[in-house]
Design a protein around this nucleic acid. Structure first.
Lengths: 210, 210
DNA sequence: TAATTTATGTGATGCAAATCACAAATTAAT
DNA sequence: ATTAATTTGTGATTTGCATCACATAAATTA
């Protein structure tokens, strides 16, 4: 745990803070598709993502979903922070897109560290900023882009987060993430294939152009 | 300035912090439609909103706009905080929807206060949370709602923020905020009027049902 | 190997919203 | 008072996407 923590966070956190994190943090391995945070959860702390990829989705009353953004190593879940500190419910669901490793930080420490460590304050503010910007990008996609553009952005974004050039997924799963229908996705994927931007296989999409 | 600050912030901030704010804060009056923050600005501090209403919009490359959310008294601009602390560009535009009063807090103090005042830490975190949640609502609207529902939500939200039951606006302005065309708005407004939810006048919309 | 399930392909149809085109009504400017 | 600009109303057409219906293909399971 200390090893990976230092690998991704030694340039972010002071040595003393890393020591504290090692002491109180709870290491956890997430298997693919494991739900880390669910709608309405009250968080007892926040996760630091050491390895892997986590998708954050929003759900409406009808159970319809839409992807908000992905987290990758070095990230934390700003929504959890909110929930943990203010003791309010979390409005999102967090699901591991692949096997991931996290350190769970108990909420009791979060405010102490704000006083003690400048690096922690920066990290928290920076995390919020990144997330706000991600949300703006999500709004941009929804407001300004057509479905084909959104789809291409989805594919390239996800490939980057997953650190792979092909994605193991079905058309239906993409449709869920983008809150549209499988038929629409299948047609647009075929179109992207014709433009030589991707190549389609069963349960797999190879991205040719980034 | 102290008077209004205490009116809206005495339950939020410690007395000592209010004293400090009075010392270093710069009071400013904004006239209607004045641009407080523009795209690409690097903020030298953050605004505390004492009175009035401010809309936060996002713009894409083509100059198309979409409303993200409104700020009201007691609020601050989380996006500015980000920009001020990290010295990065602001991705939004903030425009006074009516005459407003703000206190501008210089960025040099922002981090000091995080260490000194628990109430300030809470305020900052709370502000980010509120804004993240607003962004989620914006995404919900765009992803899950039809234009007529979005329009009705827009009207009632704006009326609440403006603290009035009628809005002085044109169909075209609404269309800009919602990133659609005037024709669409005119037709949906007429529809809402037929459902007795609103009453239409020239340059004015009265909301009958909240 | 046959039967079943899962993933993808494709035509047809409907609908919300975008776009075009222009008229009518109201207000502001000369 | 006449002209010009702004605001709103309305028909016609197009387009992107949703939805329905069903076919085909590949992978699982019996």
């Amino acid at each position: 745990m200390r090893e990976k923590l230092e690998k991704y966070f030694s340039y972010v956190f002071e040595k003393e803070l890393i020591d504290e994190i090692v002491q109180v943090g709870i290491y956890k391995k997430l298997r693919e598709n494991e739900v880390l945070v669910d709608l309405g959860d009250k968080m007892k702390g926040i996760p630091l993502l050491l390895e892997g990829a986590i998708k954050i989705v929003r759900e409406d009353k009808n159970g319809d979903e839409i992807l908000l953004y992905f987290l990758e190593r070095g990230d934390t879940c700003a929504s959890s922070f909110a929930s943990a500190v203010s003791n309010t419910k979390c409005g999102i669901r967090a699901i591991a897109e692949k096997e991931s490793e996290i350190i769970f930080l108990p909420k009791e420490k979060l405010d102490d560290w704000m006083v003690k460590y400048k690096s922690w304050r920066n990290f928290v503010i920076e995390s919020y900023n990144i997330r706000l910007n991600e949300m703006m990008e999500t709004v941009d996609s929804l407001a300004f882009m057509r479905m084909d553009e959104r789809l291409y952005k989805y594919l390239t974004d996800k490939a980057q987060i997953m650190r792979e050039t092909s994605l193991n997924t079905t058309h239906q799963e993409i449709a869920y993430d983008m809150h549209t229908s499988r038929v629409v996705i299948s047609r647009l994927l075929k179109q992207l294939e014709n433009e030589s931007k991707i190549k389609l296989y069963r349960n797999k999409i190879e991205i040719l152009e980034f």
